[in-house]
Design a binder for these strands. Structure first.
Length: 424
RNA sequence: GUGCCUGUAGCUCAAUGGCAGAGCGCCGCACUGUGGCUGCGGUGGUUGUGGGUUCGAGUCCCAUCAGGCACCCCA
């Protein structure tokens, strides 16, 4: 045998037993999103590079996008995020869309980075956005959808927190410290790293940026001031609304949250496990200018994205993922010989016409092997159909969990199987 | 792109520079028309690849490929 061709770095193979998690997550996502009135949508997986060029931040486009030339010579990118596509689609059909828009989407994304814990090059991402409202009700609602999902999958606010901040508040604070506006992006990055770097390194880094000791001291003091959200009307209102929405317990003010994407303009947040041992589970916030930047009429939006990788790590860590059998088959019909293939298929078809999920064993092999297969697949019922049963116009129904087995007339197969399945 | 760590059976991992092993899995038999459990037997390998040092390399050295982790960035 020649060597097995390798999969592409950073991609993951989803065997049936691994699809179970993704589908489980997707089901929770759909139910929660619909509960809040959000509609599912999807964008192309390929977009022109131009779409991302000025909107997503240099790093994401220049370093992390999968970019290539198509056969016609145009530069296209595998989408590294969804929000620019959202902005484009909204801009294209602004007039016919009934605002406010509440949209959600779940699909694959690609970023060319070194795979590591919580990060893959191909990943799935849930996006939730509300466009056409500048009210903090919208921010609080979208963030509450995030909280509702966390709750829905079985996590608690003791395990996961959504840390919230306001970019306006931060801008004000930074100005008060005497840092000019052009330093702001660099200082945001410095703030972002404050819990990652050792304090001495962090101070060094701050000095390199040109901050003096007084400014650094003031900055540190600000970063530890967990009560200052009271100075932000925006945040006061945000927290107040989450109270009304019944999700207040999930949120916490954190002055160190400044999101990396360039297009955020207002309230921002990210969810982490309580002790921040993993990467962010989800991140989001308000973006006021995005749609106008792709050439549309200005429309304000707020939304978040959640990747599938970190939430899986967290869900496994807190043991909230149920044990689901990837095999959904309810009944296996055995095959005894080439002569009895008619009878086996007749029984299977009758069951299928009654909405039951049925397999017929494809090969004439020992009954032992057929039963062992059913056992390993976790199929609860086996219908044994051999010469004796056929002769008598019966089938033999075996329940693998209890080992019980009985012969019944062919005409009563459906009702008997139904009864067994209902009693489980 | 930078740094650190790891590559041994299908899987998880052992093996002072000196005969490549265990558990699990898989296959068979006990039980030729009955799974799981048990007992017995069997299958398991170019030690990632290439080179070097050595009487002798899974082990040491170099290169290379792959994977993991961290940085960068971010879901």
């Amino acid at each position: 045998m020649s060597e097995i061709i390798r999969s592409v770095k950073g991609t993951r193979d989803f065997y049936p037993d691994q699809m179970v998690f993704r589908n489980w997550l997707y089901n929770h996502i759909r139910i929660v999103a619909e509960r809040y009135g959000y509609q599912e949508w999807e964008a192309p997986i390929l977009e022109t590079l131009e779409l991302y060029a000025a909107k997503s931040g240099d790093e994401l486009v220049k370093e992390q996008a999968f970019v290539f030339e198509d056969r016609g010579g145009s530069l296209v990118a595998l989408r590294p995020e969804l929000t620019p596509s959202l902005a484009r689609m909204v801009a294209q059909h602004r007039q016919r869309l009934n605002v406010p828009l509440r949209w959600w989407s779940f699909g694959p994304f690609w970023r060319y980075e070194r795979p590591q814990k919580g990060r893959a090059r191909e990943f799935f991402q849930w996006n939730v956005d509300l466009l056409g409202s500048t009210s903090l009700n919208a921010d609080a609602e979208v963030a509450s959808v995030a909280a509702a999902l966390l709750s829905s999958v079985g996590l608690s606010s003791d395990e996961v927190v959504i840390r919230v901040n306001s970019l306006q508040l931060m801008e004000r604070r930074i100005a008060e410290i005497g840092i000019t506006k052009d330093f702001q992006p660099a200082v945001f990055r410095l703030i972002d790293r404050s819990d990652k770097m050792a304090e001495s390194k962090w101070l060094e880094y701050g000095q390199r940026l040109g901050l003096n000791n007084g400014q650094l001291t003031a900055l540190i003091e600000m970063l530890y001031d967990t009560d200052q959200w009271g100075d932000s009307e925006q945040l006061c209102e945000f927290f107040q609304i989450t109270e009304y929405m019944g999700t207040r317990e999930w949120f916490e003010f954190d002055p160190r949250i400044v999101r990396g994407l360039d297009y955020y303009t207002g309230v921002v947040y990210e969810a982490r496990d309580k002790f921040a041992r993993h990467r962010a589970i989800l991140g989001g916030g308000r973006y006021d200018n995005l749609v106008s930047e792709v050439g549309g009429e200005p429309i304000s939006g707020t939304g978040f994205a959640m990747g599938d990788v970190v939430i899986q790590l967290i869900a496994q860590e807190f043991e909230v993922v149920p044990d689901i059998n990837p095999c959904r088959t309810q009944i296996l019909v055995t095959l005894f010989g080439d002569e009895s293939i008619v009878q086996s298929n007749n029984v299977a078809n009758e069951l299928r016409q009654n909405d039951l999920r049925v397999e017929v064993y494809p090969d004439v092999v020992k009954l032992k092997s057929q039963l062992r297969y059913a056992d390993r697949q976790g199929i609860p019922i086996v219908i044994v159909l051999g010469p004796d049963e056929i002769e008598a116009g019966e089938v033999s129904i075996k329940q693998l969990v209890t080992g019980e087995q009985s012969n019944i007339p062919l005409a009563r197969v459906v009702q008997t199987v139904r009864k067994i399945l209902e009693s489980e």
